[in-house]
């Protein structure tokens, strides 16, 4: 598992392939924070800096929990985990936007990666760091009065019945 995380971090910092000539940039803030349940948008660009068009380009996200040192399954975090770009013309620059849902509290590092057909390694952007604070709402949907109150009411009802019976028999 540790080697997987190390490999992913290595991928984040990997320099762009000289032959692919793809540049990935994150234009939104490099550090984002919020509370579990919040949504943030990560903006970036993918540019073909070379003289020829590149085909079969796919951009995707990679997220690592920097506290647990484990990659994170993007299920629930982002609806669109990857974007198939297809062909990107010479000198063209395309925007990349990902809506990220903060699911769990903790510290995370996110990178945009791209793979190009024929290349043997991915191209990575700079890292964006997230700090997700825990959501502290003890009464979601005003459920607490019911969730606590009803069992208490039932106990009180039976105590009252017992009291009345004891009083009657005395």
């Amino acid at each position: 598992m540790m080697s997987v995380s190390i490999a992913l971090f290595a991928a984040f910092g990997a320099p762009a392939s000289a032959t692919a000539a793809i540049a990935l940039d994150v234009s939104s803030s490099k550090t984002l924070s919020g509370t579990a349940g919040d949504f943030v948008t990560v903006n970036g660009t993918i540019a073909n800096t070379g003289p020829t068009a590149l085909s079969d380009v796919t951009a995707y996200l990679s997220l690592v929990d920097t506290t647990a040192h484990m990659p994170v399954d993007l299920e629930d975090w982002s609806v669109e985990k990857g974007l198939y770009i297809g062909t990107i013309g010479a000198g063209a620059k395309l925007p990349l936007d990902w809506k990220i849902h903060f699911v769990k509290s903790g510290d995370y590092a996110l990178s945009i990666l791209a793979i190009v057909k024929g290349e043997n390694k991915p191209i990575g952007s700079a890292l964006t760091y997230f700090h997700v604070a825990q959501k502290k709402n003890l009464n979601p949907g005003a459920v607490l009065p019911v969730a606590l109150g009803e069992p208490i009411l039932i106990v009180m009802f039976f105590l009252l019945l017992k009291y009345r019976r004891d009083k009657k028999s005395a």
């Binding site: 349940g37 959501k135 979601p140 019911v146």
Partner: peptide, 22 residues
């Protein structure tokens, strides 16, 4: 009483998840 406790725990868990939009 146990039925009420089962419903309490279930509702609390479900509503917490709903609040996270999960």
């Amino acid at each position: 009483l146990l039925t009420a406790i089962i419903y309490s725990v279930t509702c609390y868990l479900l509503l917490t998840n709903k609040e996270l939009s999960l």
